[in-house]
Amino acid sequence: MNLRRDVFQAIADPTRRAILLLLATQTMTAGAIAANFDTARPTVSKHLQILTECELLGQQQNGREVYYHINAKNMKQVADFIEPFRQMWDDRFNKLESIMKNYKSDK
C-alpha cells in the first residue's frame, strides 16, 4: 500500500469527504454511515476500507458492533497541504509590512 499518496487521494473523493464530515462529531457503525448515502452498501464499505487503510479512520469494537471514528492526527496532515501556501503569503506580507514601515519613517 502506498500510504504516502493515499491520504491525499482519499480526500479527493466527494463520498469519502462526506463520510469524514459525518464522523467529525460522532462515532458511527458502517450501517449508520451507509444510511446517509444513496449508493449501495458495498460501495460505502469500500470507501470506509480506503479511509481506514490510509489511517484517516479508526475502528473500535463495541459488543457486536464496530464503530468508526476519525483519526484526528492524520486529518491534521491533510490540512497541512495548504500550510506551505499560507507560509508563502505570510512571508510576502511580512516583507510588505517591513518595507512599508521603513517607507513611512523615510518621509
Partner: peptide
C-alpha cells in the same frame, strides 16, 4: 517541498 515534508513526517 511542503508536501514532501508532510509525506516525510508521515
Amino acid at each position: 517541498q511542503g508536501i514532501n515534508m508532510a509525506h516525510n513526517r508521515l
